[in-house]
Simulated scan of single mutants.
Amino acid sequence: MTLTFYDCKTAPSPRRARIILAEKDVPHDVVEIDLRKGEQMGAEFLAINPNATVPALKLEDGTVLTDNAGIAVWLEETFPEPPMMGTTALEKSEIATWQWKVEQEFGMGVASALRNSTPAMKGRALPGPHNYEQIPALAERGMQQIGHFFDKLERHLAGKDFVAANQLSVADVTAFVFMDFAKIVRLQPGEECTNIARWRDSLRQRPAFQL
C-alpha cells in the first residue's frame, strides 16, 4: 500500500497525523507543503485538497483524506495496532470526549490567539481558501481559554499517565501538539503544573513525539 502524506514541518495540524503515522509505523511517502510560501493556495495543491489545508493523506486508490479526524479514523481502522482511539465502547467514549475537549477548549484558543493577533496573518484569521479579517477580542479570549484549559488538564492528570482511558490516544497527541505550539503565543503551563510536566516529559521520550 502506497500512501502519500502532505505535511508541513512548521505547522501543528499535520504534526498530529505525523505522530499517529509514526506510532503505528505506517509506511508512507511525504510531500512537504510550505505554508509560509503559500503553497497550500497553489493550483497544484488545491487540486489535491480544495480546503487549502494540511494534513492530507492520499490513499492508494486516489482517495484523499483532508483533515485530522478522517485521517485518524482511517489509520485506526486500517492499522489497528497499537490502538489509539480505544477498543471498548467505554474507552472509545472517553477518548472521544477528551479529544473534543482538547480541540474545542484548547486548540481553538491557541488558534484564536495566534491568528487574530499576528501581523503576518492579517486577513487570514481562519485557515482555508477564504480570507477573514482579524478580531483582536478573539485573541484575548483565546489566551483566556488556554489558561483555563491548563488548569483543567492539571487537575485531570493527577494520578494519571495519559489523558484518557489509561492509554496513549489521539487525545494525548492533540494536547501535546497544541501545548508545544502554544509557545508561539508565549503561554505555557506554570511551574505549579507538575502533573502536566510529568505527562509531557513522558511523551517526549517517545520517538514519534520527537518528530
Rank of each mutant, 00 (worst) to 15 (best):
M1K: 14
M1G: 08
T2C: 05
T2N: 13
L3I: 04
T4E: 14
Y6M: 09
Y6T: 09
D7K: 02
C8W: 01
K9R: 11
K9A: 13
R15S: 07
R16Q: 07
A17D: 05
I20L: 11
I20E: 06
L21N: 03
A22Q: 08
E23N: 07
K24Y: 07
K24P: 03
D25L: 13
V26C: 05
V31W: 02
E32T: 12
D34A: 05
L35W: 02
K37P: 03
E39L: 10
E44F: 04
F45W: 10
F45H: 09
A47D: 12
N51T: 09
N51Q: 14
N51C: 01
A56G: 08
G62I: 08
T63H: 13
T66G: 03
N68C: 14
A69I: 02
A69P: 05
G70H: 04
I71P: 11
A72T: 09
V73N: 04
V73L: 10
V73P: 01
W74I: 07
L75Q: 08
L75F: 13
L75K: 03
E76L: 12
E77Y: 03
T78K: 13
T78Q: 12
F79P: 06
E81C: 12
M84G: 01
G86R: 01
T87F: 06
T88Y: 03
K92P: 04
S93H: 11
A96S: 10
Q99D: 15
K101A: 14
E103F: 08
E103P: 07
F106P: 01
G107C: 00
M108H: 09
V110E: 00
A111H: 07
A111M: 11
A113W: 00
R115P: 07
N116K: 02
S117D: 14
P119H: 12
A120V: 06
A120W: 05
M121T: 03
K122S: 15
G128P: 14
P129N: 05
H130Q: 15
E133A: 14
E133N: 14
I135A: 02
A139F: 05
A139H: 02
Q144P: 14
Q144G: 15
Q145F: 09
G147T: 12
H148C: 09
D151H: 09
K160H: 12
D161R: 10
A164P: 01
A164I: 03
S169T: 04
V170K: 08
V170Q: 15
A171I: 00
A171P: 00
V173F: 08
V177A: 03
F178G: 00
F178P: 01
D180K: 14
D180S: 08
F181E: 06
A182W: 11
K183W: 10
K183P: 07
V185N: 06
L187P: 01
Q188V: 08
P189G: 11
G190N: 15
G190M: 10
T194A: 15
N195Y: 05
R198F: 02
W199D: 02
R200N: 13
D201I: 11
S202L: 11
L203G: 04
Q205I: 04
A208S: 15
L211V: 10
